[in-house]
Simulated scan of single mutants.
Amino acid sequence: MGRELKRLKRRKDVVSRLDALLEQATTTLVIHYSCESFYDKTDGKTPRVTSLAVRNLASGQTDSFSIHQIAEEQHVAFEQIAEHYDALERHMLDRFFDFLRTRQHCNWIHWNMRDVNYGFAAIEHRYRVLGGAPIQVSEDRKFDLSRALVDIYGVGYIGHPRLEMLIELNKITAKDFMTGKQEAAAFDNKEFVKLHQSTLRKVDTLANIFERTTNKSLKTKATWAEQYGFTPAVIGEWAKEHWLVTTLVAGGGLLTFVVRVFDLWALFGGNNP
């Protein structure tokens, strides 16, 4: 199977998965989290997790976990949070993994949470560093919406940064939304409330994009042919690999040969009695 046909099959599989997640909306969760910048770290330590938000796709109910809320509960003064980072972060992640433990049967929609720099693995590693024992989400329960959109609409469906560009193109509210760079600056400035609000906004935004994708109302820069996979390259690969087309082409070549033979036969007196 050619590359373009493989992409078309992958698109079909992703669309089927989207439909399945929508049908299982009551047990489908949208997750996002904010953390310390992983680009500016020079001490080799993993970036701290500052807040997490999990939204139920069906109800919209959102559970959140943040350092500043734990600090408030434990009567740690706002200006003293930095002095108690490890204990506060550990307590926050305790809460999150307790939450996760009772939802291992759920599906988890995320945006680029794929590795130890930023992703489920990064949260798990951070928890281990703090002495915790993380619960892992099964790979077949994770659904990367950012990759799914590429599979559906093609790599050029929107410019970079894709999430921000999608928000702008689809006129989705960006209130409280911060870019990764802005979130890193907010952490450095100890603006934990802003970080938390941005995380909450992002799970709401991801749920919005997911729903628009499933009802085919999401606006992108993809052409109709790119979106549905009917590009000349796909058609060419299909024609090359489909047995019926191959047979017809071969038959057409044989017919041309036969016609040429009869022409020659007629030219050299084949019509004479």
Rank of each mutant, 00 (worst) to 15 (best):
Q197A: 14
L200V: 14
R141H: 15
L130A: 04
H160D: 10
T46Y: 02
R128V: 15
V30N: 01
N170H: 10
Q182I: 06
T42Y: 04
G154M: 04
L18G: 03
A207T: 12
L254Q: 07
F230W: 14
V150G: 01
G131V: 06
A207E: 09
D176F: 12
H110L: 09
F97K: 13
D19E: 14
A185H: 02
H105M: 01
L21Q: 02
E4M: 08
Y153L: 03
T179E: 09
E183I: 11
V76S: 07
G2D: 14
D140H: 11
G156F: 10
Q227A: 11
R90F: 01
S59V: 09
K221S: 05
Y33K: 02
G159V: 10
L206N: 04
R48D: 05
L264T: 01
Q74R: 13
Q69A: 11
L200N: 09
N189L: 11
R3A: 14
C35V: 00
V49F: 00
Y85H: 08
H91L: 11
F38E: 05
R126A: 02
L163G: 02
R17M: 14
T26W: 06
L166I: 06
I167N: 04
G131L: 10
E211G: 02
G269L: 05
S51I: 03
V258H: 02
V150I: 13
R55G: 11
A121I: 13
E164F: 14
K181G: 10
E139G: 06
I31R: 04
R260C: 10
A58S: 08
S138Y: 07
Q104W: 01
F262P: 03
T246K: 15
R7W: 09
R212G: 02
K142E: 11
A58G: 01
Y228R: 12
I152Y: 02
L145H: 03
A186M: 07
L267G: 07
L166Q: 06
A87M: 12
V234Y: 04
E79L: 13
Q182H: 07
L22S: 11
N107H: 15
R101C: 02
G229T: 00
Y33L: 12
I81G: 04
E23R: 15
F120S: 08
N208A: 11
C35K: 07
V155C: 02
H84S: 10
I135A: 08
T26A: 05
G236A: 06
V15T: 01
L254T: 06
H160M: 09
K41T: 12
W265G: 08
K9V: 14
G269V: 03
R95S: 14
L100T: 09
I158V: 13
V14P: 01
V203A: 08
N107K: 10
H196I: 04
D43Q: 05
A239Q: 07
G270N: 09
A250I: 15
T246H: 12
P161Q: 10
R10S: 14
A184K: 08
H32W: 03
